[in-house]
Nucleic acid binder design. Structure first.
Length: 321
DNA sequence: AACTACAGCAACCGCGTGGGC
DNA sequence: AGCCCACGCGGTTGCTGTAGT
């Protein structure tokens, strides 16, 4: 007997998500929390399969997701981690809590792979170690060590923050928004930003639809209000970002959230600071390379470990170049 | 201006795995 | 112990925008 389809193929919508669907999904998750994805399409009336809902949430709507260009630090981190972990994007993403595994995977496939290939070609040409065309081996190593030092410091800071922090006790391992605990509205502020952004693009790209959009959106909101599934108090009179903010009453939270979510770049890769990292991220304790990395990052006196990691990282990275 | 090629990214697909029964 | 379900992950696909001709 073959594997049963994850969802009924008939009547299941595919393709890009509309802002309306996003609203419905976010609204539902706000109320019930992520999880039990199987029930989401049924309970929301979304004509999407559960997988699609989960993916949409984890890759786009989930709070704390940073979109847009990757910073140099992020780029380097990805390269290092990829060298260490291979294509274990979820593990890599757990060290870049504001990025999704899908994002990192895409970035690797579209940018970094090419970049490295290019550099490798350059290396072949000059048959030597060359990470950057403008960087000597010594410079590279120094820079890498500086990065590592920064990461280490950031991790320590993050950990000390964690201990004294008054942040809600969300740990990477329990960030799955258990159904029993109510979701704080603030956690969804960035989701509304995402939706708003999506809607803006959508409307920009579909001027013909912009008229009906607000109507249908209003309808869906009204429907939700009627079923009591939306926190909206019917304040959405337009499909502007402000409209969404008012829909979810997020205005007052946005600044706070962006402060708490937009942690310092240098702290991004610490699992301990991954307040909003993917709920589904595996427990890193079980991952030997990451444990080594963490251990090494944490252990100031572990000079040997540092050497190991540098050797490991550089060794494998060098192979790439 | 029209067409083509390419890049970037969102979403899908299929497999693996863990937990509950 | 074995089955089933739900979920997570990595690879792949396909759509859309843009640069080049």
């Amino acid at each position: 007997m073959g594997r049963p389809p994850c969802c009924d193929k008939i009547g299941v919508k595919k393709g890009p998500w509309t802002p309306e669907e996003d609203i419905i999904l976010v609204s539902y998750i706000q109320e019930h929390g992520p999880g039990n994805w199987r029930a989401v399409p049924t309970n929301t009336g979304l004509l999407r399969c559960s997988k699609s809902c989960r993916l949409r949430w984890t890759n786009y709507l989930r709070p704390g997701i940073k979109r847009g260009n990757f910073t140099d630090d992020e780029e380097k981190m990805i390269i290092h981690l990829q060298a260490l972990l291979g294509n274990r994007w979820a593990a890599i993403a757990s060290y870049l809590p504001e990025r999704t595994d899908n994002d990192i995977k895409n970035y690797w496939n579209t940018h970094l792979k090419k970049k490295l290939k290019k550099l490798q070609g350059h290396d072949d040409h000059c048959h030597g170690f060359s990470v950057s065309q403008s960087m000597s081996k010594g410079q590279w190593e120094r820079r890498l060590q500086t990065d590592i030092q920064t990461a280490k410091q950031a991790l320590c800071e993050a950990l000390s923050l964690d201990k004294s922090s008054n942040l809600p006790d969300i740990k990477p391992s329990d960030a799955s928004f258990p159904h029993t605990s109510p979701i704080q509205s603030s956690s969804y502020a960035l989701s509304t930003e995402n939706i708003a952004r999506s809607l803006e693009n959508w409307m920009k790209n579909s001027p013909k639809l912009s008229q009906t959009c607000s109507e249908t959106t209003q309808n869906s909101i009204n429907n939700q209000a009627a079923t009591g599934s939306s926190p909206s108090e019917g304040t959405l009179s337009s499909t502007t970002p402000e409209g969404f903010d008012s829909l979810f009453s997020f205005n007052s939270y946005n600044s706070d959230v962006s402060q708490s979510v937009s942690v310092d770049e240098t702290t991004n890769f610490t699992p301990e600071t991954s307040l909003f990292q993917d709920e589904s991220k595996p427990n890193l304790d079980t991952q030997v390379p990451l444990t080594l990395l963490e251990k090494w990052l944490l252990d100031d006196g572990a000079a040997q470990g540092q050497d190991d990691l540098i050797n490991m990282s550089l060794g494998e990275t060098i192979e790439l170049f």
